[in-house]
């Protein structure tokens, strides 16, 4: 099945023609789910909701319909800070201190497992 439906007369799909909500819509929340006890919460997706309680309820309905989690966190997306893409690239490239890796040290076979 293709969702790339061919362009038909009447379809412009031009976003400039829409008004959107310009901030009047509900804020976005990031959803984190702990799949089972003993492991961390993992980001699973996002959703819109007016407040935290509704966000949690929607998260349960949208992301955990089949027992995917035993615990859910929701965090306002606007509260998440992150590196800008360029800074992130530098950050990753600066991490080239290979002597930090265990595998860069040769241990003779006679010593056995280390």
């Amino acid at each position: 099945m293709t969702y790339d439906v061919p362009i038909a007369p009447g379809e412009t799909g031009d976003l400039a023609e829409t008004t959107g909500t310009s901030g009047r819509g509900w804020p976005m929340w990031e959803v984190f789910v702990r799949a089972r006890r003993g492991i961390s919460h993992v980001h699973i997706g996002s959703l819109h909701a007016p407040d935290a309680r509704t966000a949690l309820q929607n998260a349960r309905d949208v992301y955990t319909r089949r027992g995917e989690g035993v615990s859910v966190w929701v965090v306002p997306s606007s509260e998440i800070s992150a590196f800008e893409p360029e800074a992130a690239a530098e950050y990753v490239e600066a991490n080239e201190k290979v002597y930090r890796l265990a595998t860069t040290y040769d241990i003779p076979d006679e010593v056995g497992q280390m």
């Binding site: 009447g10 799909g13 829409t18 008004t19 959107g20 997706g45 959703l47």
Partner: peptide, 25 residues
């Protein structure tokens, strides 16, 4: 949600659907 990561608002997409400017299968 995936579409919104590309810098578009959900309500904009709803509007395009309702006005027949966006298609569906």
């Amino acid at each position: 949600s995936a579409a919104e990561t590309l810098g578009v608002e959900r309500d904009q997409l709803q509007q395009l659907l309702h006005e027949g400017k966006h298609k569906y299968s």
